[in-house]
Write a protein that binds this DNA or RNA. Structure first.
Length: 561
RNA sequence: GCGCCUGUAGCUCAGUUGGAUAGAGCAAUGGCCUUCUAAGCCAUGUGCCAGGGGUUCGAAUCCCUUCAGGCGCGCCA
């Protein structure tokens, strides 16, 4: 519920449209000066008048009516005071009517958004370095769906490359079916790490590994079978984590899927005279765009990352006819995406403008970067497990009679991990620390979940029917909470526009704070009549809004905790 | 060397398209549960918004420049 438009319609300024004025209206830093304000400085030049005079003249032309209760001219500002009671009642009623649809919109109807995220490597462990792409992508997936778009989640599997020849070599020489079945990805990683240790002394192994990889490509039944086994095992194992994080995909078409789709790309580039030979390689020259060239074919004729990405982009456009195609990939690859988007543009793909690199910061450990090959990683399943254990401990302390402790601890533990990962602007680097994810107080996931549990608790203790309510005045805490709740739809919208799930995370904190303040100031169960009904309705509206916000992030809300 | 990103309180970070006195959380100190879940709330202090120029009625926000850190810069993905 946004009253900016409503207010803008009451204002007339020569040379400025109603829409323009609407964008100029802002919310004052201090609520005592007004609920909305129009700074008049920018009109000064056009109207050839001092801002304070403009504000004064505008004030005299507006007669307060409807939800506008009072207008004041203060310096160069035109300040509006709303009928806070009417506003609060409207907001709460709307939320209760909308329920789990509150905040959802139709702006995206008929449009498809492809989101490439998580994109795991086969036979590699899922560590905290994969967390950002997974939860950012997952949140965007839900946010776009919430806005009416059709989101298509794509897990662009890393399932192609010599490393799989190495893995097969290791498996055949010192691995066993039993061990791999028992150990899963951990065992595959062990084989891979061992391979590197041994191949340093025996470089001939690499030739063998390359041979095995070639056999996979040629369709050798034994190698393909092994490879598919590794692939299925990886996906099955990672799915357990995806379930916890509420992550879903519509396609697992990975690198190998595009093997037979790259030649046409090369042909097309050739036809369009975009390919240039340089040091034996085939490149697209991007010098005039102030970028290094995009390499399409190696000097040995093999395709590269960019070739595959171009093929994948074209495939996605043909298959899904997307409105936007997002790539949730860390900022290390900024240049790569600029190059490959530019190449698409040069190929005459008008939709190249719809390609978006959703770039985010890196995760490192306190003692430096992670490395799978050196075993220096923090596994996500370990982090989640430790958080769950901590949650369980806290429950035993604070609420030992809780029924489904394990289940609740799971929600809290994973909630803390997801919330922490989505809390800051995505471009910020993160240094992982257990202290930080294990903090359940202050601006954290558990804090927001706890707020919902408080709402539930209050409502469970009352059997008053609050479907109809009416009050004639509201206090500051009630009004501030209602305003916070009202902001949800616009927060969802801007988080999609900026591809920034942290807007939703921060918003959830704002609402939780407003509620907890309200909870302190306003007794609910002791009240009677309409006041009680209104406050119960506020609780319900808070719960609904927070649940909706958290579910966009992939976080579940326990009834009690 | 070139390009991109980042720099705000002791720490981690917010700060919408330039707007009113720069805000939270953590940490510290002191308060608040015989009454709705204390994973909560209240109070207290902290700033050369990295430095320097400029544009503007007005700059943490825009432009230029310096410094510090991160990432990237042809056959890995």
């Amino acid at each position: 519920m946004d009253y900016k438009k409503y207010i803008a319609q009451k204002i007339e300024i020569d040379g400025f449209s109603c829409e323009e004025i609407e964008t100029f209206i802002e919310i004052p830093p201090e609520k005592s000066v007004g609920d909305y304000a129009l700074p008049c400085f920018r009109f000064s030049r056009a109207l050839k008048k001092a801002p304070n005079i403009i504000a004064q003249e505008l004030k005299e032309k507006i007669t307060p009516s409807g939800v506008i209760r009072e207008v004041q001219a203060v310096g160069g500002y035109l300040n509006f005071f709303l009928d806070r009671t009417a506003v609060s009642l409207d907001v709460v009623k709307e939320i209760l009517d909308s329920g789990e649809k509150y905040g959802s919109q139709k702006v995206g109807e008929g449009k498809t958004v492809c989101i490439d995220y998580s994109s795991i490597n086969i036979a590699k462990p899922f560590h905290i370095g994969h967390l950002s792409t997974t939860v950012i992508g997952g949140a965007l997936y839900r946010i776009f769906n919430f806005l009416g778009y059709k989101a298509v989640g794509i897990n662009h599997l890393g399932d192609y490359g010599t490393q799989f020849g190495k893995l097969i070599y290791a498996y055949k020489n010192w691995g066993s079916r039993e061990e791999v079945e028992k150990g899963g990805i951990k065992e595959l990683t062990r084989l891979y790490v061992d391979y590197h240790a041994k191949s340093e002394e025996n470089p001939a192994m690499d030739d063998e590994a390359r041979r095995y990889f070639k056999l996979i490509e040629e369709g050798d039944s034994e190698c393909v079978e092994l490879f598919n086994w590794f692939k299925e095992m990886t996906i099955k194992e990672v799915n357990k984590i995806y379930d916890l994080l509420d992550i879903h995909f519509d396609s697992y078409a990975g690198e190998s899927f595009y093997n037979d789709k790259m030649q046409v790309v090369v042909d097309e580039l050739n036809e369009k005279n975009l390919l240039v030979e340089s040091d034996g390689a085939k490149i697209v020259d991007l010098e005039q765009f102030n970028m290094p060239p995009c390499i399409i074919l190696r000097s040995d004729g093999a395709s590269l990352y960019a070739t595959r990405d171009i093929a994948a982009a074209i495939y996605r456009k043909n298959t899904y006819d997307f409105y936007k195609c997002l790539y949730v990939v860390a900022y290390q690859q900024d240049l790569h995406f600029k190059q490959f988007f530019k190449t698409l543009e040069l190929m005459g793909k008008t939709w190249a403008k719809d390609m978006v690199h959703v770039s985010y910061g890196m995760v490192s450990l306190e003692d430096g970067a992670m490395s799978t090959r050196h075993g220096k990683v923090v596994l996500l399943e370990d982090v989640i497990r430790v958080c769950m254990e901590k949650a369980l401990k806290v429950i035993e302390e604070k609420n030992p009679s809780l029924e489904n402790k394990e289940e609740v601890a799971k929600m809290i533990g994973t909630g803390a991990v997801i919330f922490g990962a989505l809390q800051n602007n995505k471009i910020k680097d993160i240094v992982f620390s257990y202290d930080k994810v294990l903090s359940f107080e202050g601006e954290t996931g558990p804090y927001v979940q706890y707020t919902v549990a408080r709402c539930n608790s209050v409502m469970a203790k009352s059997d008053v029917d609050y479907s109809e309510f009416n009050v004639t005045e509201v206090c500051d805490s009630e009004y501030n909470l209602a305003v916070a709740l009202a902001n949800f739809p616009s927060v969802v919208l801007s988080s999609a526009e900026k591809y920034e799930p942290s807007f939703v995370t921060r918003y959830a904190i704002d609402v939780a704070k407003a509620f907890n303040r309200f909870y302190l100031d306003c007794k609910i169960l002791n009240e009677t009549g309409d006041r009680k009904k209104f406050r119960l309705a506020l609780c319900d509206a808070t719960r609904t809004t927070l649940k909706n916000a958290l579910s966009l992030l992939g976080i579940k809300t326990p009834e009690r905790m």
